[in-house]
């Protein structure tokens, strides 16, 4: 069984870079080998589907982050040989923000994909 570890400083980090750093990752670079799946507009800001995937070799962690949340980090997944490096969850968003998927590799490098997800007040229509 895994040890129950919880990296408090990662989940209190205000920026993407600080959260990545808390897991030993360098300043993240944009990469086509990381995929973030998220909607253009959140249907419900309290439940926004997000998935992170990577085709890079040697990925240790996959992170999902929302830049403008009070703390950026939503979830950290450890990637093992037993699972595909493709994980999905649903997150809360208080406002329109860039959402990041970050892959941290065994050698401490970090790569990201990002996308703006709009959170709107709603109520109009054709």
């Amino acid at each position: 069984q895994f040890a129950w570890a919880f990296n408090k400083s990662a989940f209190e980090a205000k920026s993407i870079a600080d959260a990545v750093k808390a897991y030993g990752g360098a300043a993240p670079a944009e990469s086509k080998d990381v995929t973030l799946t998220a909607p253009d507009i959140a249907e419900n800001g309290a439940v926004v589907p997000m998935a992170a995937a990577s085709s890079l070799p040697g990925v240790k962690h996959l992170l999902i982050l929302v830049e403008k949340n009070p703390s950026a980090l939503v979830a950290k997944f450890d990637v093992s040989d037993a699972i595909e490096p493709n994980l999905a969850t649903r997150a809360k968003m208080g406002q329109t923000s860039d959402v990041y998927a970050v892959a941290i590799t065994n050698d401490g490098k970090a790569y990201y994909a990002k996308k703006e997800v709009k959170v709107t007040l709603g109520g109009c229509g054709g």
């Binding site: 253009d40 507009i41 709009k118 709107t120 007040l121 109009c124 229509g125 054709g126």
Partner: peptide, 20 residues
């Protein structure tokens, strides 16, 4: 908020109504 739903340059961010 409504103006962006109408005039966002990316149609996927538009909701198709008119301005309030």
């Amino acid at each position: 908020d409504v103006a962006d739903n109408l005039f966002n340059p990316d149609p996927y961010y538009q909701q198709g109504g008119d301005m309030v």
